[in-house]
Amino acid sequence: MLSRHAADTIELAAERVKRGEMSRRSFMWAMAALGFAPIALNAKGALAKASEIVVVNFGGDAVAAWGTAWGEPFTADTGIKVTIIGGEPTPGSIKAMVESGSVTWDCTDGDAYYLPILAKEKLIQPYDYKVVSKDKVRPEFVFEYGCATYLYSTVNGYNLEKTGGKVPNGFKDFLNFKDFPGKRSLYKWLIGSLEAVLIGAGVEPDKLYPLDTDKAFAILREHKDEFLLWGGGAASQQLFRDGEVTMGCIWSTRASVLDRESEGKLGWTWDNGIIAPGIMPVLVNNPAGPEVFNFIASTQDPKRQIKLLELLGNGPANPAAGALLTDALKKIDCGYEPNYRRQIPVNSDWYAENYDRVQNEFLDLMGS
């Protein structure tokens, strides 16, 4: 039971938030310091109407890009501030925040395979599809607890100086060391890596999932010295810039930068790329309440999705954005229909069920 003084302290702080004299994030931190955070949101309804939405992505250029493409337009529409924070919104971080009883994030960036993991532990909310439109997303990327807000793709990048000017046939040439000698790059955190190995071993795209991890690991053991791992986008680019790899897994956003700066010497192909949705899970007890779904719905606007493509290279999740693409943007948009048809949608259910186990086995194998 709160003392009257403590209750009045919370009420005064909440009133400052309502008047715009204190940000909601500062309010939550202050209440947490006083030990009141779990209760503070109920202070006489003072925060019933959100004054701020806090969104967390994985940082870097994405912070400013999300702010420009999505945050500022929503604020202009509604008057509600959108704060974009760079961090590590992993399932573990979300779990720790929710279980602390002091939730300060409204929604975060994430992969679709996060959703069943987080939902099972009741850490996130089902999406309000009366507000967010299922019709503005490809049906394969609509889930109970979230839908795609952007698309990204893991593609086969290549160095024409090392391939003798030949363009690989997507990941089907990934293990073709005879015609394309040299090392290959693999994503340390798995998505796209085993797919590249299996397609290179002759597995047909429509037979790719469930992934045959035994087969993939056997191939990796046989050719382990031919693979170099990367854990972040900048590192993946550097492997190509330094001439360490002939071809390899790379996000299309990074590949397009290499293509541009090298005047086409470092290229990529959409063939057999693994295309995946970026999702915004909404935390339970999120401070902004249902207003967060209005923000997510606003990101579905085709013009705002095109702006993110221009700034960051992420593909629009809304197919209607295709009508707004310039020729230059069509080249780099993984979701542009002719590019999309050449790729393979990731099987998020398989990753949700198997990721932790397979990831650990993969790192053990590559580190041994």
Rank of each mutant, 00 (worst) to 15 (best):
Trp230Met: 10
Ala218Lys: 13
Ile191Asp: 11
Leu258Gly: 07
Trp189Pro: 00
Gly200Asp: 11
Gly273Thr: 11
Ala218Glu: 07
Asp225Lys: 15
Ser262Phe: 05
Lys183Ser: 05
Met280Gly: 01
Lys224Cys: 05
Ala201His: 09
Gln238Leu: 12
Asp214Thr: 14
Trp268Glu: 04
Leu309Phe: 11
Asn176Ser: 01
Asp225Ala: 15
Gln238Arg: 15
Glu310Lys: 14
Pro205Asn: 08
Leu312Trp: 09
Gly192Asp: 06
Ala218Ser: 12
Asn176Met: 02
Ala255Pro: 05
Phe227Asn: 07
Leu194Thr: 00
Ala234Cys: 04
Phe174Ile: 00
Glu261Arg: 09
Arg254Lys: 13
Glu244Phe: 10
Gly273Leu: 01
Leu309Trp: 09
Gly278Trp: 11
Thr299Leu: 15
Ala297Lys: 05
Asn314Arg: 00
Pro290Met: 08
Lys188Trp: 12
Ile274Thr: 10
Arg254Trp: 13
Gly231Asp: 15
Ile279Thr: 08
Ala288Thr: 06
Cys249Met: 12
Leu228Glu: 12
Asn285Lys: 14
Trp268Asp: 03
Trp251Ser: 08
Pro290Cys: 03
Leu309Gly: 11
Arg254Tyr: 14
Pro287Phe: 08
Asn285Cys: 09
Met247Glu: 07
Tyr187Leu: 04
Ile296Asp: 08
Leu283Ser: 05
Val292Phe: 00
Glu222Thr: 11
Arg304Lys: 14
Ile274Ser: 09
Arg241Val: 14
Asp301Tyr: 00
Pro277Val: 03
Pro205Cys: 06
Leu229Ile: 02
Asp212Val: 05
Leu220Lys: 12
Ile279Trp: 05
Ala255Asp: 08
Val292Cys: 11
Leu309Val: 02
Asp214Phe: 08
Asp206Pro: 01
Asp214Arg: 07
Glu204Arg: 15
Leu228Met: 13
Gly267Ser: 12
Asp259Leu: 15
Lys215Glu: 07
Glu222Asp: 10
Ile279Asn: 11
Leu228Gly: 08
Ala297Trp: 04
Arg184Pro: 05
Ile306Gln: 02
Pro210Asn: 11
Pro290Val: 10
Val292Leu: 01
Gln238Pro: 06
Gly202His: 03
Gln305Thr: 01
Ala276Trp: 04
Met247Ile: 03
Ile250Leu: 13
Phe295Val: 04
Asp301Glu: 15
Asp173Thr: 02
Asp173Ser: 12
Pro277Ser: 14
Phe240Thr: 06
Leu208Gly: 10
Glu263Thr: 11
Asp259Glu: 14
Phe180Ile: 09
Gly202Trp: 07
Phe174Leu: 01
Glu226Arg: 15
Asp301Gln: 08
Gly313His: 03
Pro287Arg: 03
Leu211Gln: 06
Leu186Val: 00
Asp212Cys: 07
Asp179Arg: 01
Gly278Ile: 13
Thr299Ser: 13
Lys307Ile: 01
Arg260Tyr: 13
Pro277Asp: 09
Glu310Leu: 04
Gly278Val: 12
Leu194Tyr: 02
Leu220Trp: 12
Asn294Gly: 08
Arg184Ile: 01
Glu244Gly: 01
Phe293Met: 10
Val203Gln: 04
Asp179Thr: 07
Gly200Glu: 06
Ala235Thr: 14
Leu266Met: 07
Met247Ala: 15
Pro302Met: 05
Phe293Asn: 06
Trp270Gln: 01
Gly289Arg: 02
Val203Arg: 13
Ile296Met: 02
Ala196Ile: 02
Leu266Val: 11
Leu308Gln: 10
Leu311Lys: 04
Asn294Ile: 04
